[in-house]
Amino acid sequence: MATKRDYYEVLEVTKTATFEEIKKAYRKKAIQYHPDKNPGDEEAEDKFKEAAEAYEILSDEQKRAKYDRYGHSAPGGFGSSHSGGFSMDDIFSQFGDIFGGHFGGGFGGFGGQRGPRANRGSDLRVKVKLTLKDIAAGVEKKIKVNKFVACTYCKGTGADGGTAYETCSTCKGSGVVTRVMNTILGQMQTQSTCPTCNGEGKTITKKCSHCAGEGIVKEEEVISINIPAGVAEGMQLSMSGKGNAARHGGVNGDLLILVEEEQHPELFRDDNDVVYNLLLSFSTAALGGNVVVPTIDGKVKVTIEPGTQPGKVLRLKNKGLPSINRYGTGDLLINISVYIPETLSDSEKSTLTGLENSPNFQPSKSVKDKIFRHFRKMFD
């Protein structure tokens, strides 16, 4: 499979381009590579489809933001129609309107073969809260959504009994009205959406009483969502066809799932690593010992070496979170802090005073240099 080109490169626009600039760039490309201007040229047809795919993503604010962050490998895809490959009918039915009604049918009537317009249901957006344990292993979540579904009484048509409709007399069922114009390029056939049937190719003679002729009704539905391991706060996943049903039949919208992370009581996330701040007593840091620390999956025992200094970081390999692209697993980073008592008894003060003059209780030059380098890295 060929590597996809950058969408901004395809349309020859910058990443800061406005919607109008993107729209103008797509129109230019579509005219340049239109199949009727390039008959039999498969490369031109591929570029025509490539431009439509780029426009579909970059003209949608949410899809564009997702593409800017993750590129073509965005988790869950873009919930777009191009995922299965654009057809010419897809392009003309979805984007023909950007030509202002003067190019929708193409040259020589290429677009005239497209059928009635298929309605599309709106997308649904939900938020899903996940724990670190959910994110580490992946999880299935069941959620209730109140959404539009196809009316069972009219089979989503909006017509009484699903049969009380007839072919549109204006467009003869094509969903479009056609005109022929003479231009400097020769005869051009222009198409626009039929005003009588709104592009559906049929008109209802008797409305369904259950849905008032809309073809859709509101219902509650339980949807199972499979969340892959390694997702992060702010990621958006999509489930194709799980959004609202379309009026009078057509294509369902998508369900868009926004990921939210629940704060762990002891751990916090740093990309795919997980960080824990371990507070040691002065004696444990000096003498060493075994301590228990939390991980995503439970508790583990960690050995503290004698003379462990504050600021030291212990690393437990592969105890973090997996990469969503399956490029490995992060680590658990244990940041060492040492607790210094705020109050001491007289005997404790006496003991420490006695140790103050011991050479072992005075930092050596190498220790001072090590601490200096540690802090310099923090501020570089």
Score class of each variant (00 low, 15 high):
Tyr8Gly: 13
Thr14Asn: 15
Ile22Asp: 11
Ile22Asn: 12
Lys23Glu: 15
Lys23Asp: 13
Tyr26Gln: 04
Lys29Glu: 14
Lys37Asn: 07
Pro39Gly: 03
Pro39Asp: 09
Pro39Lys: 02
Glu42Thr: 07
Asp46Arg: 15
Phe48Pro: 01
Ala51Cys: 13
Ala52Val: 06
Ala54Cys: 14
Ala54Glu: 12
Tyr55Cys: 15
Leu58Thr: 03
Leu58Pro: 08
Glu61Arg: 14
Ala65Arg: 05
Arg69His: 10
Gly76Thr: 02
Gly79Phe: 09
Asp89Leu: 10
Gln113Leu: 14
Gln113Cys: 15
Gly115Asp: 09
Pro116Ala: 01
Arg117His: 00
Gly121Arg: 05
Ala136Lys: 07
Glu140His: 06
Lys142Asn: 12
Lys142His: 00
Lys144Trp: 06
Lys144Ala: 15
Tyr153Cys: 08
Asp160Ser: 15
Gly161Trp: 07
Ala164Lys: 02
Glu166Met: 12
Ser169Ile: 04
Gly173Tyr: 05
Val176Tyr: 09
Val177Ile: 14
Arg179Val: 09
Ile184Glu: 13
Leu185Lys: 08
Gln189Met: 15
Thr190His: 13
Gln191Pro: 03
Thr196Gln: 12
Thr196Gly: 11
Glu200Cys: 05
Ser209Trp: 00
Val222Arg: 08
Ile223Asn: 03
Ile225Trp: 11
Asn226Trp: 01
Met235Trp: 01
Leu237Pro: 02
Met239Asn: 04
Met239Asp: 09
Gly243Gln: 04
Gly250Val: 03
Val251Tyr: 02
Asn252Gln: 12
Gly253Gln: 07
Val259Tyr: 02
Glu260Trp: 01
Glu262Leu: 15
Gln263Phe: 07
His264Glu: 03
Leu278Ile: 02
Thr295Pro: 09
Ile296Trp: 00
Ile296Ala: 00
Gly298Ile: 01
Gly298Leu: 09
Lys301Trp: 01
Ile304Trp: 03
Thr308Arg: 06
Gly311Arg: 03
Lys312Trp: 04
Leu314Phe: 08
Leu314Gly: 04
Leu316Tyr: 00
Leu321Ser: 01
Ser323Tyr: 07
Arg326Ser: 11
Gly328Ile: 04
Leu332Gly: 01
Leu332Trp: 06
Glu342Phe: 10
Glu342His: 08
Glu348Ser: 12
Glu356Arg: 14
Ser358Pro: 00
Gln362Ser: 13
Ser364Asp: 02
Ser364Gly: 11
Lys365Val: 05
